[in-house]
Amino acid sequence: MNSGIVFDIKEFAIYDGPGIRTTVFMKGCPLRCQWCHNPEGLSKQPQLLFSRAACRNCGSCRQVCENEKCTACGKCVSHCPLGLRRIAGTAWTAQALAERLVKNKVAFDASNGGVTFSGGEPLLQWDFIEQVIAFLPEIHVAVETSGYADENLFLRMQNAVRLVMMDIKLADNTKHKRYTGVENVRILQNLNLLKLGNTPYIIRIPLIPGVNDDAENLENTAALLENPGPLVRVELLPYHQTAGAKYEMIGMNYRPDFHTDLAPQIILEPFQNRNFPVMVL
């Protein structure tokens, strides 16, 4: 049995679907959204996270390091006297992960909650997730996805879960490529699968100031949702300034090409006009 790489497991994830839920963050993502607040979820490989700001340069970590370039072996983690280092990305077998998730079943049952697979992009590790789900009978499973995946794979996912939460970041393909690194063609194809299918879905739009919070983009996005099928609602997630917090920890620079200090506009009318339930998170 192969294993999956998980960079976090969060109990009581409040905004990831109905009821009390545990969210599993799968590592690896094909998109490079400029506003991504989980940069440790981008690479498929385990990575060392290091809180530089509090480091006193005592050198304990260097003494135990045997590599010229970091391989995320994790040896230095236990040698930092301040506990500033950790590895993002743990390999789980499907069975072990399922056992971990089932531990919270009493809370899921009491609140109509369940498990959400997020990321990163969970569809990149869908074979593994399918195995996990096989060990989770009677647990409500949801997926949070960019929608950037092969149609057959997406369909498989859609049939295996009880709720899909999918982003539509930008309606315009050129802009989508500019801000996320990929085109939105596959995403919009998969949106059609959601509209035509039976699985309830939620559309999420991260509102990024000056990027996609304009009336035109939101109008075009709402238009894409017409004849929505089993759409539950649209959720708008205003950009938050703390998004850049983890970049330094992972040795990356946070240099988004938009004004991070502006508050995004919140325009609900395009959705309200079409009677789509909409809420701001």
Binding site: I9, K10, E11, F12, I20, T22, K103, N104, V106, A107
Partner: peptide, 9 residues
């Protein structure tokens, strides 16, 4: 901590 559900249990 793993989270509030584990905590409560």
């Amino acid at each position: 901590l793993d989270g509030p559900v584990s905590l409560i249990k």
